[in-house]
């Protein structure tokens, strides 16, 4: 499922950006785990309305959060959805949304294991 180490979640890069602060690392990861499903819901609602600008804006927010925790696959997928929304291309939005859901699902499993362990 994970093509290369760090593609889904680059733990080392994230920790390096936090200056090696493990406590802060867990605190931020916990908030991301809680908030990511809400952000997915916002995108889902935007997808249902078929409004490209709403899709773009919701995807942008998720991209920012994914970037903050070095979740590279989700960062790329939500970036693609943001661009598709900005271009007003709803077919491309549908495709990108599939990618976003797949990436989020794998990522959240990985992070839950990380926080629990």
């Amino acid at each position: 499922m994970d093509p290369a180490p760090g593609t889904i979640f680059d733990r080392e890069e994230f920790l390096r950006r936090l200056g090696g602060d493990e406590e802060l690392y867990r605190e931020v990861l916990q908030v991301f785990l809680e908030d990511c499903p809400n952000q997915m819901d916002v995108i889902r609602t935007a997808m249902d309305t078929r409004d490209p600008m709403r899709i773009r804006s919701a995807a942008h927010a998720l991209k920012g959060a994914a970037g903050s925790v070095s979740a590279r696959a989700l960062f790329e997928a939500s970036g693609a959805l943001e661009r598709a929304g900005a271009g007003g291309d709803l077919d491309a939005c549908d495709q990108a949304w599939q990618q976003v859901q797949a990436a989020a699902s794998v990522l959240l499993d990985r992070m839950r294991a990380e926080v629990a362990g």
Binding site: L24, V28, E34, Q39, G64
Partner: peptide, 17 residues
């Protein structure tokens, strides 16, 4: 000021430190 909770948590926890 940010609408993303992960970013605001990261920033506020860092500033507190």
């Amino acid at each position: 000021a940010d609408d993303d909770r992960t970013t605001t948590t990261l920033l506020s926890a860092t500033l507190r430190r």
